[in-house]
Write a protein that binds this DNA or RNA. Sequence first.
DNA 1: CGGGTCGGTCCGAATTCTGGACGCACGCTA
DNA 2: TAGCGTGCGTCCAGAATTCGGACCGACCCG
Lengths: 147, 147
Amino acid sequence: MAAPADPRVCSIARALEVVGEKWALLAVREVFLGNRRFDEMIRRTGAPRDTLTARLRTLVAAGILQRHRYSDHPQRFEYHLTTAGRDLYPVILTLLRWGDEHLAGPEGPPLVLEHTCGHLLVPEVTCQACGEVVDPAETTRRSPTGS
Amino acid sequence: MAAPADPRVCSIARALEVVGEKWALLAVREVFLGNRRFDEMIRRTGAPRDTLTARLRTLVAAGILQRHRYSDHPQRFEYHLTTAGRDLYPVILTLLRWGDEHLAGPEGPPLVLEHTCGHLLVPEVTCQACGEVVDPAETTRRSPTGS
DNA sequence: CGGGTCGGTCCGAATTCTGGACGCACGCTA
DNA sequence: TAGCGTGCGTCCAGAATTCGGACCGACCCG
């Protein structure tokens, strides 16, 4: 018998169905940075117009962005983060950090964030319960669908 | 004048060039879960064979995975995480959490992790300096390339 | 010999992405 | 009134990717 084919049911896979694509996440990045308009996103992401149009549509459909009329006559729209969209911040931050660490040239990271605590923001992923930084080795699967 | 077109130089964009695709990250997920072989990844991700082949190649080229012969005669390979690959754990965890919160059905998350501290793992992103959970509103851009 | 496993490759059809041109509804300037 | 600029797209056609399924070579097992 060939492969039984048993794709894992998994929140990661589901999440990637929606945001698992470059332009989608870059559009979200722009909104986090305050650029909510189509043309601005085109400029700052470099996405093709058609592609951005499509991505924005799926992001809106997924409840990550909201399309907002800021002018009738002529109709003009802005994209705002919903709660679900704001909850993507951790994803963006971890990607940012990974890129900073593994893909930055000698000039260092091109975009630096500062936390209100006064320090440069270095995002870490910690366990809500104990506050420790999470390491793959300190993590185990619980209950369902084994290896 | 039309759009000046000024795509942001950004670690997020760079990171997405490498891991900004569903199958790439799902392959990495499988390796984290201990499935290091091609066929196993095919089974558990649902990716087309050709696509997985291509993704594994770029992941290896990017220094995220390492291809390892575990048998000559017949030649057989496994994929292992490099340090850079292990550093993707935070990205995976934040995606997992987002999916758990926004895409899980009433049966709850299909995959649950446990931290060595004894509690279920709920990953949070915190500021390395002050330990506080990071909120988009408490974050500002520093120095380079404005809005 | 007849199966089965593993890690792919090959193929053709279907889909998606890309970049450039174009459109339309305005507002501004002169 | 004409002419230009902006904002937010759409349309198109060619290029690139993806998909699914068949196939393959090198084994091992009974």
